[in-house]
Design a protein around this nucleic acid. Structure first.
Lengths: 143, 143
DNA sequence: TTGCGTGCAAAGGTTTTGCATGGCA
DNA sequence: TGCCATGCAAAACCTTTGCACGCAA
């Protein structure tokens, strides 16, 4: 997918909404609902096409939280590296999504790059596990 | 989903196949094809139901490699911790999947646990990024 | 005027579900 | 015999695609 040649009403609406949602994640369906509630009509196919284009441009990040539910998108600005990237921690128990600042995990990124030649994409990566409160809950139950 | 109450022919076939596939990953469809080629008929619904049950039991791990393609399953034995767990590295460029031994990333696991109270599930986690050969390829192209 | 972007509806692929049947205990 | 597991087909779900039309440049 390449950059758009024409500017359209829909693109403007979309982009301004995405910027508004910076730091939050959303699905294609949620975008559609947002505009529906504002009585702005944008076809779902257009939304998918535009989101996909923005992902290709690197303006938008795409990742999956729940297996086989809708894809999540997140606005990360025009230049990923200028922003503070973060990892996503997903609790398998309660389903909550935590954002983890990249600083903490720079080691990981560097380790992968230096030792394994693997350039990690923190945006797309979701770390699964159990969060603290759920772990505590589980331990109590076990007693 | 709870443990099965009755033992069935299909469960036996499935489990022995899964053990055979230890360390490799497979989709529900691939399981179906395997048995079809052996002229053993197991309905796809049964396969999904059994796989899901085994995931709940912790015997099987489930993760997604490609966004919105089929889920991957992987047999990890009766006790995850007794085995050598590994992470999955997925190259966004060539699509290859690399297995990464846990030893290397124990630091990460410990860091998350100690600093953030997050107990990582390495099996389910897929780290996305660019592998070395793809990175080299890209740099050549850029010249 | 040219051809890209849009919208609709249909199709696509994976997974889940309802319901009748088969088979384990 | 009672009830769980199975199989089939249909449905559900998210996403992509074909095609005609509208609109930006």
């Amino acid at each position: 997918m390449q950059k758009s040649v024409y500017k359209t009403r829909q693109q403007d609406f979309l982009l301004s909404y995405l910027k508004e949602m910076k730091g939050k994640h959303f699905t294609a369906e949620e975008v559609r609902e947002h505009f529906e509630s504002k009585e702005i009509s944008i076809g779902i196919a257009t939304i998918y096409r535009q989101l996909e284009r923005l992902v290709a441009d690197g303006v938008l990040q795409k990742y999956f939280i729940d297996e086989h539910s809708a894809a999540c998108f997140e606005y990360s600005g025009d230049d990923c590296n200028a922003e503070t990237p973060h990892f996503h921690l997903k609790c398998e128990e309660c389903g909550n999504l935590f954002h983890l600042e990249c600083d903490d995990l720079e080691e990981l990124t560097n380790h992968l790059k230096n030792e394994h030649g693997f350039t990690l994409n923190p945006y797309r990566t979701v770390l699964y596990g159990i969060c603290l409160s759920c772990k505590n809950k589980k331990q109590k139950e076990a007693k």
